[in-house]
Simulated scan of single mutants.
Amino acid sequence: MTDTGRRPAGELESAVLAALWAAHTPLTPPQVQRRLDGALARTTVATILARLHEKGTVARSRAGRAYAYTPVVEDEAALAARRMHSELAKGGDRDGVLAHFVSGLTRDDERLLRDLLGRLGHGTIEGP
């Protein structure tokens, strides 16, 4: 068993998701562990996959007596967007959250966001 050095959960989740994205096929916890070159214990991988499943980030299906996992989101950008939507859906001051988010954007990010919103309004890009 390899010591993870107490890395943050988000870093471990990202590593597990990267292995699933690269596989392009459902993987069991031992298969994920092998793709991570044994850097994490099998039980750690299984726990991370269970947490990702609880969050709705991965789907699971029976593979014999175990589960095989497939990512629900297609990449890091989609995952970040899903997290942002989740934060907004928690309720509270939605206007305030969005105002704080937008106020922290760089000028380039502002231009990009305006462009994307304009294209969304004209039907040239798909919404969520």
Rank of each mutant, 00 (worst) to 15 (best):
M1G: 13
M1V: 08
T2W: 06
D3M: 06
T4Q: 10
T4K: 10
R7D: 09
R7I: 13
R7V: 14
G10K: 07
E11L: 12
S14K: 08
S14I: 01
A15N: 03
L17W: 03
A18M: 02
A19T: 00
W21C: 02
W21P: 00
A23V: 00
H24K: 13
T25C: 01
T25A: 12
P26Y: 09
L27Y: 05
L27A: 05
T28Q: 13
P29S: 08
Q31P: 02
Q31V: 01
R34K: 10
R34G: 03
R34V: 06
R35V: 00
L36Y: 01
L36F: 02
D37V: 01
D37Y: 04
G38C: 07
G38H: 06
A39I: 01
A39H: 02
A39V: 01
L40Y: 14
L40F: 13
L40R: 12
L40E: 07
V45L: 04
A46K: 11
T47P: 00
T47W: 07
T47V: 02
R51S: 09
R51T: 10
R51I: 02
R51G: 09
R51C: 01
H53V: 01
H53Y: 10
K55P: 00
G56I: 05
T57K: 04
A59I: 00
S61H: 07
R62I: 06
R62N: 07
R62H: 11
A63H: 14
G64Y: 09
G64W: 08
A66R: 12
A66Q: 11
Y67G: 01
A68T: 03
Y69C: 05
T70S: 15
P71Y: 04
V73Y: 14
E74P: 13
D75H: 12
D75P: 04
A78L: 02
L79P: 01
L79K: 08
A81R: 09
R82L: 15
R83M: 14
M84F: 15
M84W: 15
S86W: 08
E87S: 11
L88P: 00
L88D: 04
A89I: 05
A89T: 08
A89F: 01
G92P: 08
D93H: 08
R94I: 11
D95H: 10
G96A: 08
G96S: 07
L98V: 15
H100W: 06
H100D: 14
F101E: 01
V102L: 11
S103A: 11
S103H: 05
G104H: 12
G104I: 08
L105W: 05
T106M: 04
R107Y: 09
D108W: 02
D108V: 09
D109F: 06
E110T: 11
R111I: 12
R111T: 13
L113G: 03
R114G: 10
R114D: 15
D115T: 13
D115I: 02
D115K: 10
L116N: 05
G118D: 14
R119K: 15
R119L: 14
R119V: 03
G121M: 07
G121I: 04
G121N: 11
G121Y: 04
H122A: 14
G123P: 06
T124M: 11
I125G: 05
E126Q: 12
E126K: 12
